[in-house]
Design a protein around this nucleic acid. Structure first.
Lengths: 192, 192
DNA sequence: CTATGAAAGTGACCATGGTCAATTTATGGA
DNA sequence: TCCATAAATTGACCATGGTCACTTTCATAG
């Protein structure tokens, strides 16, 4: 049997309720119990729709990041590290709004450990694709595969975000740190 | 008043009980209730010694990693990417034994968000120090600060470990992936 | 040796995510 | 229209991490 309209409606109610709560009080404060109460369904229903609370978080946070990527994909390939940073900063802002959000992203960035790939993991893949295309067409090092370059940008992204939450490493903004990383990664000058 | 002997004994009992359980059934299966039962103390006592379960994990996992670093610090500075990998692999093995372990490490790698720095975060700092020293004295690129190089190695480490748990990225071993990363990061050849 | 205040320890209790046997609702065929 | 089956939903219940008012133990001043 195909999925019923009812199912889609319930799912929509759950997601809307969750989003509303998050808009009010942030991601960390979200409680499954509140969501099902607002959505007017039983607790068990929630878990029929989402494997666990984290799956909902993956869906919602992944959705936000996908929206940023929609913007990013419309851009011209950047011609400098600075232009790359301009493109990345909006999503960085989102990812650092709450430590909790970044933790969810971290947990899910390496893709689902088992089953199918989640929304956040998808954004990383999508990000890699866009980035590889950009890097292949920009004024950057040519000695390595653009996919590898993109992979590295992803790694430095995580690093910069992680250090942002680290009390020992303040004083540098994420953008400044990323700029240092990307210059060293994309524009190495080992001879000079 | 100074800390009492009693305190140290209780703490030791808790840690020993936890370590035994972990040796039996792994990190993920650890239950606070089991630990306090084995240690012969009340649940509340556990939380008087550790802020939360994660703090115990940080202590135990951080301890293991510190032991690897003890070995690493005795080594001669490596003369190639391959030798760096030889030095890193043992701890990689430990970090990938359980997805759960890697998640704990990820959560704590960026140092404590608030209060004082945890054991795992310390290992990252220590690792950075050793690595910077190595890189400064090895046949690697000279156009950037060794500390920055070390920082990058850390970022690629996380990336390689994360991808190891990603079903979409199998076929490459961690070591192979790290080798690719480190060659591109430490020995760039943008001209050729 | 005893009183006293601080440190350590206790366990009933709470918060919250997650499960599952039972129930209700939808769908398609006879 | 009615039945059989699958899908969807329910909510009591469980697992487990974490809290806190209270009790016990310790160290030291007098």
């Amino acid at each position: 049997m195909a999925v019923q309209t009812r199912t889609l409606k319930t799912r929509a109610k759950l997601i809307e309720a969750a989003q509303n709560r998050i808009n009010e009080a942030g991601y960390e404060a979200l409680r499954v119990e509140d969501v099902v109460k607002d959505a007017g369904v039983a607790k068990g229903t929630f878990f029929a729709h989402f494997k666990d609370k984290d799956a909902l978080m993956d869906h919602l946070i992944g959705g936000e990041i996908h929206a940023f990527l929609d913007e990013v994909e419309l851009m011209e390939p950047p011609k400098s590290v600075d232009e790359i940073l301009d493109a990345l900063m909006p999503s960085f802002e989102f990812m650092t709004q709450e430590r909790f959000v970044f933790d969810v992203i971290l947990r899910h960035s390496g893709a689902a450990q088992n089953s199918e790939i989640g929304a956040i993991a998808q954004t990383f893949i999508r990000n890699g694709t866009v980035m590889a295309h950009w890097l292949a067409h920009g004024p950057f090092r040519k000695d390595i595969d653009p996919a590898l370059m993109a992979d590295g940008v992803g790694a430095f992204q995580i690093q910069a975000l992680a250090l942002h939450f680290c009390t020992a490493h303040n004083g540098f903004s994420i953008r400044d740190r990323m700029e240092t990383y990307l210059n060293a990664w994309l524009l190495p000058k080992p001879s000079g």
